[in-house]
Design a protein around this nucleic acid. Structure first.
Lengths: 124, 124
DNA sequence: GACGAAATACTAAGACGTTCGTAGAAGCGT
DNA sequence: ACGCTTCTACGAACGTCTTAGTATTTCGTC
């Protein structure tokens, strides 16, 4: 599990890749909320392939087709971990405490959280 | 409460500012783990003042003295919020669930977390 | 085989972050 | 007043990210 840090723009493109599973450059251009030039998307996909290693690409007829190599969860976890390192010396507990401290969670959110903790205790 | 996003380098410097409370450029240079040029630290402190607004500076004799304007907790919260927006559509719950899902929390961490949740329920 | 549409490769420009060098100002000691 | 040290201001160089233009390739159609 490598350190999959993605930038904003890369994340936007990846969200389309994850959603569709198998895309061409044009697919991504069409699916994006923003209007980005074809070449912009191509450059970004190239980076996601060669530099980040989060997609693979294969020639299919005239065009390349891109597929995800990692799940969105993988990336989320990596990035959350990185923030945890940067801000809380790697203490997940500290980050979680900081997050729940500023009551932005509904009552049902809290219920779900308690449930997760219970199942965590069950495993351990 | 503004969006206090700090970069890696800025955070390194701020950690010294928070720790010491009141610093000169030289203080930061001396306290940093890494060896950075005096001017590098000066540039960074200037950015933290003018661009980020997280420190203020006052002339004191020959040199400027810098003091924090926001707490570390403020910045942590801002940055955690931003990640939550980017990755989890603003759902703190989703982020927390993702974090605790990959069992990197000790038994005592979990105890603390439960405690925090209890006090949260008490307030609500 | 030539033409047009669509895709790719190459390149570049602008913004930002990180790093630091050089030049000038300001204070201290003699 | 002169020189040394310390500080600031300015700006430059490099890397990365975002965006996109231009040139080239490729494929299907006539």
């Amino acid at each position: 599990m490598a350190a999959h840090h993605l930038t904003n723009c890369e994340l936007e493109v990846m969200d389309v890749v994850w959603q569709k599973g198998r895309v061409t450059v044009q697919d991504v251009v069409d699916a994006l909320d923003r209007s980005l030039a074809y070449t912009t998307v191509m450059t970004t996909l190239k980076i996601l392939d060669e530099k980040r290693g989060v997609v693979k690409r294969m020639k299919s007829g005239r065009a390349y087709v891109y597929e995800p190599l990692v799940t969105r969860e993988d990336v989320c976890r990596s990035m959350a971990d990185q923030l945890t390192q940067q801000l809380f010396q790697g203490s997940v507990k500290s980050l979680v405490l900081s997050l729940i401290d500023t009551n932005r969670m509904s009552r049902s959110d809290i219920e779900e959280l308690k449930q997760a903790i219970r199942s965590l205790e069950g495993d351990a």
